[in-house]
Design a protein around this nucleic acid. Structure first.
Length: 348
DNA sequence: AAAACGGGGGA
DNA sequence: TCCCCAGTTTT
């Protein structure tokens, strides 16, 4: 027995004991009902879909009834399911099926994929579940099962990884019971091989599951690599005089809105003119501060400028004030500002 | 708050 | 052809 046959054999055996065989769209599994259920099941769980499916099929028992209805009524029956583009596409597809295929879903991959709302995986599910044709599916559940079984090192969103997973899904297809096998794949992913807390003890694929052998099934599929966040640099002017610091209130819009911080300027701004002031006692670079936001990384280069007197108008801004070190704690400060003030208080 | 999700649609 | 988005749920 080849490994592929063994894989499907174990899955089918598990399906016989634990699979879902009494879902509303499985009795009977007509092409229309399978199609409708697959659309409803996109991004929506079985328990949520069931009552909608029942109401929907009562009102729209076949494709022609659906095609002849107003889209608004279709959407009323969709209300609460979310992703309403699915409902619109479903209705549009029904009209295409009516006019182009005499109201019967085509048992043909290319024709199915051409329908709005039907992609490769949904077409595969319809062909396998309703027409018993040998097509694979690769939805989120199956991706998870396969990624774990092979300990797939690449993120499945990566082009080549996805191509390879489709190929594997195809190679694993059994010669017999294609519909049960596809249902079994979905059931395994939904009930056993779940995203968190997979029940590997009960899994028929445990013996050769690479992720299980590594002891880290939940590490798969590996997460989308987060793209490098943009990096920005700014300069802070830390004016100090007689135990006071010059702070300014930040604009209410934007980062740290309305909080007090140091006067800020672009990193590449000329600063030599600041040096020429004759009331400057000391002028020195302070260590850079790194700050991470969710969407970018910020490097702050503060310059310490000590004056003999707390004069105004040193920076070009009217929302500034001199604050005694001891009074600063009462103000709302961004985290890096607070840290810098504390370092200054300790004299670094 | 962040990732996941299947297909649509734009580059 | 490839990549990213819209809209929603789950972790």
């Amino acid at each position: 027995m080849t490994s592929a046959q063994d894989f499907s054999h174990r899955l089918l055996q598990w399906f016989d004991n634990h699979g879902r065989k009494n879902l509303p769209w499985q009795q009977p599994a007509t092409p229309y009902r399978v199609w409708l259920s697959e659309i409803m099941l996109q991004q929506t769980q079985v328990v949520t879909v069931i009552p909608y499916f029942q109401k929907f099929t009562e009102r729209f028992p076949d494709i022609n009834t659906l095609a002849n209805a107003e889209v608004d009524e279709v959407l009323q029956y969709w209300a609460g399911l979310g992703y309403y583009a699915r409902g619109r596409n479903l209705h549009k597809a029904a009209q295409i099926i009516q006019s182009k295929y005499q109201g019967e879903l085509p048992a043909n991959f290319d024709a199915l994929v051409d329908l709005p709302g039907v992609g490769r995986s949904t077409a595969g599910a319809i062909l396998a579940l309703a027409f018993k044709k040998h097509y694979p599916i690769l939805d989120g559940n199956v991706k998870r099962v396969l990624a774990r079984h092979t300990a797939e090192p690449r993120w499945p969103g990566e082009k080549q990884a996805e191509i390879d997973m489709w190929q594997l899904a195809e190679e694993l297809l059994p010669k017999q019971r294609i519909n049960d096998y596809i249902q079994a794949q979905m059931d395994l992913g939904a009930t056993l091989c779940t995203r968190s807390k997979p029940r590997c003890q009960a899994c028929p694929l445990q013996s050769d599951c690479q992720a299980f052998q590594l002891g880290t099934p939940t590490e798969y599929p590996i997460k989308k690599p987060k793209k490098a966040v943009p990096h920005r640099e700014i300069r802070w002017l830390v004016y100090a005089a007689k135990g006071q610091l010059l702070l300014e209130k930040r604009p209410s819009q934007g980062i740290w809105g309305g909080l007090w911080s140091f006067p800020e300027m672009p990193i590449d701004n000329e600063i030599s003119h600041l040096l020429s002031k004759n009331d400057i006692i000391r002028f020195q670079n302070l260590p850079d501060i790194q700050h991470a936001f969710t969407h970018y990384k910020l490097t702050i280069s503060p310059i310490y400028i000590e004056l003999d007197n707390p004069v105004f108008g040193v920076a070009d801004n009217d929302k500034q004030c001199w604050v005694k070190m001891d009074d600063i704690a009462a103000l709302g400060l961004p985290a890096p500002t607070k840290t810098l003030v504390q370092q200054l208080a300790r004299g670094f």
